[in-house]
Design a protein around this nucleic acid. Sequence first.
DNA 1: AACTGCAAAATTGTCGACAATTAGTTTGAC
DNA 2: GTCAAACTAATTGTCGACAATTTTGCAGTT
Lengths: 236, 236
Amino acid sequence: MSTIMGETFQSLLGRLPVTSSDRLLLEMQRAIVEGELPAGSKISEPELARKFNVSRAPLREAMARLERCHLIERIPNAGARVVKLSAEGLQALYQIREELEGLACRLAAENMDEHEIEQLRALLDQHLQSQRVREGESYYQEAGDLDFHYRIILGSKNPYLINMLCDELYFLVRMYRVQLGMNGPRVSRAFDEHKAIINAIASRDGELADLLMRRHIAASRGNIELKLQQVGTQHD
Amino acid sequence: MSTIMGETFQSLLGRLPVTSSDRLLLEMQRAIVEGELPAGSKISEPELARKFNVSRAPLREAMARLERCHLIERIPNAGARVVKLSAEGLQALYQIREELEGLACRLAAENMDEHEIEQLRALLDQHLQSQRVREGESYYQEAGDLDFHYRIILGSKNPYLINMLCDELYFLVRMYRVQLGMNGPRVSRAFDEHKAIINAIASRDGELADLLMRRHIAASRGNIELKLQQVGTQHD
DNA sequence: AACTGCAAAATTGTCGACAATTAGTTTGAC
DNA sequence: GTCAAACTAATTGTCGACAATTTTGCAGTT
């Protein structure tokens, strides 16, 4: 239904970005996730409206959607700020991720059809090749990993779950990953974990898939937590 | 920073409804939950704007927030419709509720302080008295039950979890409950389950509290599913 | 020097009108 | 008679300006 430019990023719930508000949302999401708009920085509506050459109406709508995915925080009559990354935030976010993606795995084991599972396997093989090419490189893996998680979440066939994870939580997850990176031995280990999860789903063992996904996410959290400590909490 | 007038009613994520958009949101939430705006009915922006004597700007913002809590569904250029209740929707919603509220219980057992637990106990006693007065009556219980769940969710101290459950999912839950009712022997049984959950939290047994809450929600789902079958799926 | 009150600036919230798409319908040609 | 194309109508999306609050800075007083 989408696949707009080869890149199958399910950015906007399946519909392609045509309106000004959509483009603004994508651009600002990217800018925040990649740190171009620094964490904690204040966002001025008139200023950004000028910068992007649009009126405040679509900008406000985009900001409402940014707030929805927790990338900005609005204080009623004092403006909006880009969210700050923190150890507490990471923990709170990943607590929910463990729970919801575990559920997604369990449901995916029940609801994904054989064809979807086969596609998921193909995706993993493709990642393994890529990994072999660039050893320990993290960036492409970052997108690939998300793509893997995306497909499982979609495979759960639960619309609320899909909405929550893909549209609300994942941009924050990406923000932590992009700004704190994922590399080292964790990369290849993640592949193995992915493989195990697929196997569990393919054998329709929802309980096992659930457990493996929780562990996978917990390990990922541990890795990011480490980075966060190294950098120190990013204060203003 | 907040706590503007002593009353810390968490109605709108902590801030009290002052703006037109806020009032619209509350009014439309109520109208949809109570069925005044029928499920599946089309929502016309100009029409509603006239009806509420406001411009389309705050109305659109309110509708964006209604979409966020799944009370309406927007099709890109074809208008918005009030969501329809269905057995599939109920199942999908309660799958997530079980997971997230189970987590909330586990976290509440860790993070609620003694004072909060004491207040929760007082709330339950208050409900028992009310119940004794009006036997089997469901409506007051409806609000009371939500209040109970609310406090536990808040007790989890996880902001993302609080946001998801209290601001996004609970209006739909209320819609199912209000339109399909909860009565009969389920009412008094729910009280006992609440009591058991509190006890688990008070004894800091997060695992047990988690389990009990999942069962409690599963039972509630079974009850509503029954009603849904009796009424038949509400088509247009 | 500190506090109170007022004023000015900035910001958010709201309005009415316009523009761009899209759906539905009518009309025309084959 | 059926298909197609254009026209009409309705809806959504966008704009620039205005209104209402809130914050900030300044002045005057104690």
